[in-house]
Structures are given as structure tokens and as C-alpha cells.
Design a protein around this nucleic acid. Structure first.
Lengths: 237, 237
DNA sequence: AACAACTTCTCTACGATGTAGACTGTAGCC
DNA sequence: GGCTACAGTCTACATCGTAGAGAAGTTGTT
């Protein structure tokens, strides 16, 4: 009676504020970033927010929807607009932005690449589709027909996602023991069956993701530029 | 006593044979192919094999290991060797093989792209590394230095995985109502924010994965061939 | 045939998870 | 005040992965 009304604040940092979708999603993102996808359970997230797990269902229909929300939230960090008239420079910049985004949220990448598999294109969250639309615009403004802009987008984004997956696979262990561990791992491979791979150990050990990405883009953009200068579409005047 | 020793065969099609890893994994694959990743629970797989779920732990340390096994099993379906001296033709063929593999096992693709993220390169199952080794060989034989063969491999496989993810995203719904559903979905998009995407509805509706893949490969291989003819590595005589 | 050593498979049990459904509080409005 | 709508909570349940102890089956030795 003479004690404080609030039972005991214990771990909860924030006073009980009204929840909302953004709050829930960003707490979820923090959790995923710091402890991985598996740590994102309804109970745990509820605890993190100082709320009953059930309260979350007001803001996401179920766990899968929560995951989609997180993935949308991350994609929204990507800013596309820019008036740079050089479309190749733009594509390059976007590529590096996306790469950095992925490195900032490595645990979310599996969501980015697999969640859309469960949702037909038209029904995805708008945030997810915005990059697509903006890149289409960019390409069309650059002179591609709508039709081939789509194909170019696919090749471009396909490569981008592939690169990101590749890069993340290289860097789970911390860079210090990276080389040692890597060699150790490679050492396990039968020399007869994996001569090339084993010989590449030193090269594998120092991986420069940004440079790797740029090399790939060089190839891709060169190819695209060549395509642009051709009379590619029959409708084109 | 007068009845058969075997209690009741009920649903079990095969007599109780001794289990082994291959049996378990291929049953798991069948399950994943037909009902999706979520259907692959230890209990369900046990039931499918007419065994106690616990018996599975003899052949896979835990569920994650089981998933890795399935993904390795699928990758083993990919045959790389071939003495075609034209490396570009080979890369093209492998790309299409992998694409078909992915279409044959769409539910496994999420595993293929995300499971390796949890395992450092050197510690992955050998089956998973074999394609890497073989493609490296192929490229080195084609005249690339070991060093740049690795970079080329990355660009190539990166694009490949990206394409596959892209393609699978287009085709979850069945082709009949595909167009309708697609339009329906797109119709939901605010016309102001998504003019390009909406306009592309008809193009989106008839997607030819193989052709798309080939276009991307055209770009990539052209770029690579150009690179090959350059004096790329200082060590090269 | 009899035993022993082993591998394989089964049983039971536990803690954790997602989520349905009924309930309790709380905020705004008349 | 009383009323309505919505936010948050409580309890409960089916299902999951898997630990640990034991039963059943297989194989080798004598």
C-alpha cells in the first residue's frame, strides 16, 4: 500500500506504452539481428516487449506474418530514388546498398530470399514490391522497353541475390580464426577429389565482398549496355 | 497364436526392412517434395517408414542434420562431368540441369540456398562441395587461372541461384488460374505507386524460365569470354 | 545350441512452441 | 455514470524435437 503502485520494474526498461505494429516489428528485428531467427518466438518477443505473447496477435496474424513483417521492415531501409542520369551508376549503387543491408542484417537474408516463395507476387507486402517498381522505372527511363526492363531486372536482381547468398556463406566465423578454421575445414577434404578447392585455400581466406560484387556487375552491366544499343524490341521506333 | 507373427501391416507398404541412411533420406525427400518442408517432422517421417520417430536419430543427429542430408541428396542428382571441350556450352548445360533440378524439387530450394549459411564452407557435406570442385576444374581447364576461376564460379553460381529463386517465385499457383490470380494481385496495387509493374501484367503472366535463364547466361558468358582473352593474371606466362 | 556383445529400434517423458477461446481491463464517448 | 470497442491477459491444448532407459534383433564365438 505504501509501496509503489508498479509491482517491480525488474528488467523492463520502458514503461507500459501502447503497442503498435512498428514497435512489435522492430523489436522482432532487433531480436533476429542479435540472436538469430530461431530466437524469434512469440513468447520470447512478448517477454522482450513486457507483454503477454498473445497480445502480439493483434499486430501479426501469426508467426509467418511476423516474419514477413520483419523482412518488409528491412527492405524499407533500402532507398532507391536518386536522379543520377547514369543508370549504370545507379544500378551499381543500389547493388552496394543492398549488399550492405544484407551484411547489416545477415539473419534476415534467409527470409528475404525464401519468404517470397510462399506468396504470389501480387500479394506480397507493398514494401517488398517497391524496389521492383523503382528499378523498372529507372531502366525504362534509361531507354529499355518495359518488356526488356523486366528481363534486365531479373538478371540484375538474380545476380544480386546470388552474390549476397554467396558472400554470407563465406563469413560466418569471425575473421580472426577464419583462416585457420577454413584451412582446417579444407584439410578434411580428400586431396584426390578436391585438389582445386584445397589449392585455393589462401584465396578463399581473404574474400573481398565489395570487390567481388563489382566484378560481377562489370560483366553484367557491360552485357546490358551492349543489349541496350541494339534494336532489341520490335515495337521500338 | 495361429495368426501371422506380424501384428497388422495396416498402412505400411514395405515389410520391416532394416533402415539405413539412404532409405531415411529418400523418404524424407519424398515427403518434402510432396507436402513441403513443414511436413517433414521426425514423427511424420517415422510414421512414413513404419518406425518409431526415435529410430531416425541413428541416421541423422537431429532434424537440422536431416535437412542437410536431404539437400545433399538432391545435389547429388546433379551430374557435372562431361568432356565437352567448349566450356561455355558446359556451363550452359549445367545451368539448365540445375534449373531443372530445382523445378523438380522446389520445396528443397530454400534448403539449398539457406542451409549452407549455417555451415562454414570446409565443413559442408562433400556432396555439396563436389559441384564447386568440378566447375573449378572445368574453368581452369578452359584457361582461367585458379584464382579467377574462383571469381568466375562465384559470379556464375551467384547468378544461377538468383535466377532459380526468381523463377520459383513466379510459379507457385497453378498455371490455369495463374494469369487471373496474378492480375487480381496486381490489381490490388495502387496505380499511382506501381504503374510500371501493373502495366507489365501480361508479360509477367507468361514467363519462360528456360529462356530467361538463357538470356542471363548470354550476358554473363559474353562478359566472361571477354575476360578470358585478357592477360588477367600476372603469373600467367 | 548357448551365450555374449553389439546394434537397432521402441517406450515413456519433458520442456518448448504456436495459437484458439474466454476473459479482464481500459479508453473514449454519450 | 453507463456503453461500446478495442488492447492485453489467462488458461489450455495439440504438436514438436529429443533425452534416457530399456527391449528386440543380429552377429560372432564357442
Amino acid at each position: 500500500m505504501s509501496s509503489n503502485e508498479n509491482p517491480v520494474p525488474t528488467v523492463v526498461p520502458v514503461k507500459k506504452k501502447r503497442l503498435n505494429r512498428e514497435l512489435v516489428l522492430s523489436a522482432a528485428l532487433v531480436l533476429v539481428d542479435s540472436e538469430g531467427l530461431d530466437a524469434l518466438t512469440m513468447r520470447r518477443l512478448g517477454q522482450e516487449l513486457g507483454r503477454d505473447p498473445m497480445s502480439l496477435y493483434r499486430y501479426a496474424a501469426n508467426r509467418a506474418a511476423l516474419l514477413d513483417g520483419v523482412s518488409e521492415l528491412v527492405l524499407n531501409e533500402l532507398a532507391i530514388f536518386s536522379d543520377d542520369p547514369d543508370w549504370r551508376a545507379q544500378l551499381r549503387r543500389i547493388a552496394h546498398d543492398l549488399r550492405r543491408l544484407a551484411l547489416r542484417h545477415p539473419n534476415v537474408v534467409p527470409l528475404l530470399v525464401t519468404r517470397p516463395l510462399s506468396t504470389p507476387l501480387g500479394l506480397r507486402p507493398l514494401g517488398t514490391l517497391r524496389p521492383l517498381e523503382q528499378i523498372l522505372s529507372l531502366l525504362i527511363d534509361a531507354g529499355f522497353t518495359a518488356d526488356s526492363a523486366l528481363h534486365v531486372y531479373r538478371a540484375y536482381y538474380g545476380y544480386l541475390y546470388g552474390h549476397i547468398l554467396n558472400e554470407l556463406q563465406e563469413f560466418i566465423v569471425d575473421p580472426d580464426e577464419n583462416e585457420a578454421l577454413l584451412r582446417l575445414g579444407l584439410h578434411r577434404l580428400p586431396p584426390k577429389d578436391f585438389p582445386r578447392l584445397r589449392a585455393l585455400a589462401p584465396v578463399l581466406a581473404d574474400y573481398d565482398g565489395a570487390a567481388e560484387l563489382d566484378q560481377g556487375l562489370d560483366i553484367l552491366l557491360a552485357g546490358l549496355a551492349a543489349r541496350l544499343s541494339l534494336p532489341e524490341a520490335p515495337i521500338q521506333p
